[in-house]
């Protein structure tokens, strides 16, 4: 299997690292080599956060250069644009339809760009816009947005669904397994 690179991005505190953890575990579960890279510390205090997961027969670098990601899974619509240079022209974007204005925007210095989905489409083969928060509220837990988005990504990757379900069951404490399985299904079928 040729290597696949997934870039997961968003804003510190959105549950990005959990999503990349799960994806990495699923790849190992499926018997592949996998590497995952992320940055902690200063970068997490409400700043832009990026995590990269790569899997395939043999992976060397845990990070990627421009034009090397097969997928971008984005938790915040503007952050997709910040990272889109890393996406291959043939790459796919799965984007949470959610705006979190950076500080310069909320104070009126900068403007939140308009027509972001159109811009994303220009630089990707396909884009899927997911109403993560809306779906999460449907199942009564707004904290499950990350697993919903992961479900949407899972649908487009080739891992067996059982691998995902097994990994979710192993990863979460018993009390919140069911709600996360529900969230995963919701994303998978969105």
């Amino acid at each position: 299997m040729k290597e696949t690179s997934v870039l997961i991005c968003g804003v510190g505190g959105q549950g990005i690292l959990l999503a990349s953890d799960l994806l990495g575990k699923v790849a190992i579960e499926a018997g592949l080599d996998a590497k995952k890279s992320e940055v902690h510390g200063m970068a997490q205090r409400g700043g832009a956060v990026v995590s990269i997961v790569r899997f395939g027969e043999k992976i060397y670098s845990p990070i990627i250069g421009e034009n090397e990601a097969d997928f971008i899974l984005s938790f915040e619509i503007l952050e997709t644009l910040r990272q889109i240079k890393f996406l291959k022209k043939s790459g796919i974007c799965i984007v949470n339809n959610y705006e979190l204005p950076p500080f310069s925007v909320s104070t009126g210095i900068d403007k939140y760009p308009e027509n972001i989905p159109e811009e994303i489409k220009k630089h990707s083969k396909e884009m899927f816009l997911i109403n993560g928060l809306e779906l999460a509220r449907e199942i009564g837990n707004s904290k499950t947005v990350n697993v919903i988005l992961l479900g949407a990504l899972a649908k487009r990757l080739s891992f067996p669904k059982e691998c995902w379900i097994k990994t979710i069951k192993e990863h979460f404490p018993p009390k919140i397994i069911d709600i996360n399985l529900k969230a995963f299904e919701l994303g998978y079928n969105s």
């Binding site: 700043g47 832009a48 503007l78 644009l81 910040r82 889109i84 500080f103 939140y112 760009p113 811009e119």
Partner: peptide, 10 residues
């Protein structure tokens, strides 16, 4: 990109 992306520092 044709749009300007506002920075998002910590």
């Amino acid at each position: 990109l044709t749009v300007k992306i506002p920075e998002r520092p910590p």
